[in-house]
Simulated scan of single mutants.
Amino acid sequence: MKKQKIDFILEEDDYPGEETRLLFRFYPRKSRCYGKCSKPPKSWDEVYEVDYVWSIFSQYKDEDEGPNWMMNAMYFECLGDENSIIGLIAEFCNILADGKEDYIWEDADGKTHITPILDHEHITFGDGVNWVIHKYRKTDYYEFSL
């Protein structure tokens, strides 16, 4: 059976009796991948567009109902991140983790460009999610606006 969802724990508080966690949930069966022609793509080279379905929410552990995780609050739900740039956002997070704040890339003509990662709106091509990443001064905390 194929997975209906894949969870990534973004933050977790394991204080006894008050366990909570923040999750990123990806729905692979609801997400779509389109080829450059009318046939489904057989490799990533043939992919024209990817539309992801995902959400970010919090849960708490309900000991009264057994050790079950219950929905606490839905922070963001995307039912179709058309031409998603979430892979690029993941790359930005790696660059930030290396202590850098600029994304350096080369266009099709070989010209080098520098894009600031922080406090800059990163716009998707399509009906997808735009992102802004903000870092709080003198901390290691980042805020993601979607």
Rank of each mutant, 00 (worst) to 15 (best):
I114Y: 02
I123A: 04
I95G: 13
P67W: 03
E106V: 15
P40V: 08
I85H: 10
K2Q: 09
K36H: 03
P28K: 11
A73Y: 15
K5P: 05
F76H: 15
N83V: 08
G66A: 04
I56P: 02
Y142V: 04
A97Q: 10
A108R: 11
A108Q: 08
V129G: 03
D64E: 14
T112I: 13
Y60C: 00
D109I: 01
F76T: 10
I9C: 00
D13Y: 11
D13N: 15
F57S: 01
L118V: 07
P40R: 12
K42D: 06
K30M: 05
M74I: 15
K111P: 04
S58K: 07
T20M: 07
T139Q: 04
S43F: 01
I95Y: 04
Y34M: 01
W69T: 07
F125R: 11
T112L: 05
E12W: 03
P28W: 02
A108L: 11
Y141F: 00
I123R: 15
Y141P: 05
F57E: 02
I123D: 12
I104N: 15
E82I: 07
F92I: 06
S84W: 11
N83P: 07
F125L: 05
G17P: 05
M71G: 08
E91F: 02
I89Y: 03
K5R: 14
W105V: 08
E12C: 01
I104P: 07
E82Q: 14
K5D: 09
P28E: 03
S58F: 02
G17N: 13
R21I: 06
S84R: 14
P67N: 13
C78K: 13
F8N: 10
F8I: 13
G87N: 15
E49K: 09
E143L: 01
M71C: 09
V53F: 01
T124G: 07
P28Q: 01
C33D: 05
D107I: 10
D107V: 12
I86N: 11
F92E: 06
K36G: 00
E106D: 05
M70T: 14
Y75T: 09
P40G: 12
F76K: 15
V47K: 06
E18D: 03
F26M: 04
L79K: 15
F144L: 10
Q4G: 09
L23C: 07
A73G: 04
L118K: 03
K100V: 05
P16W: 10
N72T: 14
H113S: 07
A97N: 14
L22T: 04
Y27S: 06
F8W: 06
I133N: 07
Y27C: 01
G66M: 06
S145Q: 10
L10V: 06
L96Y: 07
